[in-house]
Nucleic acid binder design. Structure first.
Ligand SMILES: [Mn+2]
Ligand SMILES: [Mn+2]
Ligand SMILES: [Zn+2]
Ligand SMILES: [Zn+2]
Lengths: 140, 140
DNA sequence: TTCCGTAATGCGAATCGTTCGCATTAAAGA
DNA sequence: TCTTTAATGCGAACGATTCGCATTACGGAA
């Protein structure tokens, strides 16, 4: 993702946009809040406003570059890999794992159909306690 | 749910608590925000504070009387019928329907297990467009 | 029944994540 | 390089929820 990729999406290749992309690409595994991205930029010595980060993330979402998730009322962002997946979250250490299950996806389609709905999206989050050695920890 | 039921749960039978219960029972089908409950009480001529409604709903949740859902960052409450279910929401008119699917529930257990998690909860919301004649409408 | 101690209430201020408004700056194409 | 216009940074505003605190009212003891 670079200068010309942004233009291809109809977005001016501005410094803040390029830097936000850098941060997201450097955290391909993770799920970052706007605040997370903002702080990463400050730490990198960038001069950017939090409002701009919010705006840029929303634009990226609209452009299909980024996916916004709503975890407990807070927005978390991740690059859109193109492959849909859902999440399982440790309520103790906050770790987020990804999974995708064809059976569940299929059933959802059917359920929507049975209720006279045309699915546009869905959100499935499983909460639990992971058994990692470094867990339990307090959530972020 | 009356005076003595509350005491049985270790909650003083105060006027606000009894009235909030009334409102929830009068809307067994629905999913209400704290604001919804608050306004219903005002309309009924009750003198209650919004903060109290929030506190009472949280207490009811803790007591297992009520379930709190997080739809798009907003809390919606409903009496706990005891039977777990998930939701399908019309993105146009805001209607919320309930469903429960044993296959999905089963798969979730297995997925959690495979990832080394002990499930404590989960949230599944399907978004779509309903085909009701009175739809589309703007969301609430 | 009346009385008291304590928990619950109502009010407004505070919080948190997010968005807005606006004067200033910087893309990008001529 | 110049010009147009979108994008930025800042702080104020926002909506949902929580807090702090002085006041009220449960409900057990007299
Ligand atoms: Mn993810
Ligand atoms: Mn429900
Ligand atoms: Zn964990
Ligand atoms: Zn609808």
């Amino acid at each position: 993702m670079d200068n010309t990729d942004l233009k291809r999406l109809g977005l001016k290749a501005t410094v803040p946009r390029l830097r936000v992309l850098d941060v997201l690409e450097a955290n391909r595994e993770g799920h970052m809040s706007a605040e997370d991205v903002y702080r990463a930029l400050l730490d990198a010595g960038e001069e950017v406003g939090l409002a701009t980060v919010y705006r840029v993330l929303t634009q990226f979402e609209t452009a299909g570059l980024v996916i916004r998730h709503n975890f407990e009322g807070r927005s978390l962002f991740e690059l859109d890999s193109g492959e849909h997946h859902d999440h399982i979250v440790c309520v103790q250490c906050g770790e987020i794992m990804e999974f995708s299950d064809a059976t569940i996806e299929r059933r959802q389609e059917r359920i929507a159909e049975e209720h006279g709905f045309k699915i546009s999206d869905h959100a499935l989050v499983i909460y639990g306690e992971c058994v990692k050695p470094r867990c339990p920890r307090r959530p972020s």
